[in-house]
């Protein structure tokens, strides 16, 4: 579909949220929560903070909740009965004001959840999600979208991408059929775009420090350079913060709860950075040291995912680095990887 350009007046955003709510859809948007900004459901645009640089957590919860029921079971008489969760009850949802990195991340998540075997849970949620992205007017020292093939105004993954123009009004690029369907909820708000609407000058300047292909190749070439990985990861604590805030990390655990006669099977986030992630029953741990786990994180995103799923596993949002309690800065360490001699 060819991208259509429209103008959404700054006052019209409130009306758009109302119309979406009125159509029975839920709206999630960045909301200021004290020192942090997080995606949360909103009833009116006044609750949203569209001037944010980055939320602490990504919005992946909407597609891949941190805890999700994948089965329930109940013993009836002698027989065990299992039942699927009712995914038809999922609400139609619009996420409004998500930056281009996060919108692109949906593709990476999807590549995992639809790799040969189709994950019905992810797909059902995705089907009901419409992404109204928001170009970035500002970045910070952690952002590196431009180094991973994206940019502050990329349309990838957005159904509609908004860019706040100098006038304060929004340029709306309608990218997909889903975006078009959303416009249909309030067609009167989407005015013809002025011919001279200048998107580029409204975008943040994000430096391109490397290319993701280079990063992947170098990481692979230096795989056996233990001094490099162990050196970078010495201060890493092996927590799940980086993976849990990351919009593309998809690793999960499966846990049963309840009794042997009645209960549920849940899946919940997990991380390759945890020391026990890979531990065998014998106690043998294939990734015994944090250096190997940190290497896995970078390799999975920059080498394995491109090789196997034909997508990159990092969109340069910088969340992992901001959230890391010990300042493991992924961008800096990727640059290290490229610069250090092997």
């Amino acid at each position: 579909m060819e991208i259509e350009r429209r103008l959404l007046k700054k006052e019209a955003l409130a009306g758009l949220v109302e119309k979406i709510n009125a159509a029975g859809r839920k709206v999630h948007a960045p909301v200021c929560e004290g020192a942090r900004v997080e995606f949360a459901p909103i009833d009116s645009i006044a609750e949203a903070d569209l001037g944010y640089v980055q939320t602490t957590q990504s919005a992946k919860n909407l597609l891949f909740p941190r805890v999700e029921r994948i089965l329930s079971f109940k013993r009836r008489g002698g027989a065990m009965e299992t039942a699927d969760p009712d995914l038809s009850a999922l609400p139609e949802t619009v996420v409004l004001g998500m930056h281009p990195c996060d919108a692109a991340a949906i593709g990476s998540l999807g590549a995992i959840f639809t790799w040969d075997t189709q994950d019905a849970f992810f797909k059902a949620r995705l089907e009901k999600l419409t992404v109204v992205g928001l170009s970035c007017a500002a970045g910070d020292e952690y952002c590196f979208c431009a180094s991973v093939g994206l940019g502050p105004g990329s349309t990838e993954g957005s159904d509609i991408l908004l860019t706040r123009l100098a006038s304060g009004d929004f340029l709306a690029e309608i990218v997909t059929a889903k975006g078009k369907a959303l416009v249909e909820l309030a067609p009167e708000l989407f005015l013809p775009a002025p011919a001279g609407a200048d998107k580029d000058s409204a975008l943040a300047r994000i430096e391109k420090s490397f290319t993701r292909e280079e990063a992947g190749e170098r990481a692979k070439a230096r795989f056996d350079d233990d001094a490099l990985w162990d050196g970078q990861a010495l201060r890493c604590l092996g927590c799940g913060a980086c993976a849990y805030v990351c919009p593309t990390c998809a690793c999960f655990d499966i846990q049963d709860e309840g009794t042997t006669s009645r209960g549920v099977r849940l899946r919940c986030w997990d991380s390759c950075g945890f020391p026990a992630f890979t531990i065998h029953t014998s106690g043998h741990n294939p990734r015994e040291e944090q250096g190997a786990r940190w290497r896995q994180r970078l390799m999975h995103k920059f080498s394995y995912m491109p090789e196997r799923q034909d997508v990159f596993g990092c969109v340069g949002c910088g969340r992992c680095s901001r959230a890391c309690p010990v300042d493991m800065n992924i961008k800096e360490h990727l640059i290290d990887l490229l610069e250090a001699k092997s």
């Binding site: 994948i70 699927d84 994950d119 019905a120 797909k123």
Partner: peptide, 9 residues
């Protein structure tokens, strides 16, 4: 669900 639940035993 349109796709089958691949986690259902």
């Amino acid at each position: 669900m349109s796709d089958a639940n691949v986690y259902k035993p």
